[in-house]
Amino acid sequence: ARYRKVDEDFFEELEEVLLQADVGFETVMELMEELRYEVQRKNVKDTSNVQSVISEKLVEIYESGEQELSELTFAESGPTVILMVGVNGVGKTTTIGKLAQRLKNEGKSVMLAAGDTFRAGAIDQLDVWGKRVGVETIKQSEGSDPAAVMYDAVRAAKSRGIDVLICDTAGRLQNKVNLMNELQKVHRVISREIPGAPHEVLLALDATTGQNAMVQAQTFKEVTEVTGIVLTKLDGTAKGGIVLAIRSKLNIPVKFVGLGEKLDDLQPFDPQKYVYGLFAEGLDQEERQTPDSDK
């Protein structure tokens, strides 16, 4: 196969592929500029050689914030508390099930807290995941105060010497001030019971989400000091490219990706692999016989 030349057509196509991966206008423009420069500097001629340059640049954009571990932080002693937050339906509760399984496989004792007391069936849903993994779920009845559930759960985790407590919260849109205040209260209750907790606040982001994910990250970070992102539903055709901009602007790293609805469908985030997936399959790599005429 004859590889395509790296020409204006190629750049235009790359731009479109990245925009269609929800990377966002500004980030794409920034990348294109740097890429043009880099391609010229390194004298890259065909697309088979440009791939690594694109990957490098994308990872650079992603990591332009401070270096931060993408691994979970654990408490030095006593229970580690992980708080799961995010807008409605993104995959918080499911991720908790998968994460619990993962931590249990690492030999840790895990407990869950059913902090979504609002949505119909939410407590039961978490409880089913808890049973699947074989860990206990601390819960109260529907409609009770989520902060009270957290209080109970933290106490139980402490007294039973649990290694990791993972707390579910109700989905909430970031522009709902009351609900964000409620979340802040939940956060406060946990911190009061265990100084330094929650050790992780994971924001679940749905990979199908477009540019609104940036505001989600911004607002949740303000309210709960988000420490990492779980990018869910990457098993579909959506790419969630906005996490690049989120990382570079807000310095929130992606820690895990969700790849399905089963217990083992959670994987650590690998930036190289991820950015490659953003553009590689979308690009037409081979020389086309007839030049595009519809431009």
Binding site: L19, D22, G89, G210, T237
Partner: peptide, 12 residues
């Protein structure tokens, strides 16, 4: 359909 959906909405 979730109103927050991005570019993938057309595929779906």
């Amino acid at each position: 359909v979730d109103a927050m959906t991005g570019q993938d909405a057309v595929n779906v």
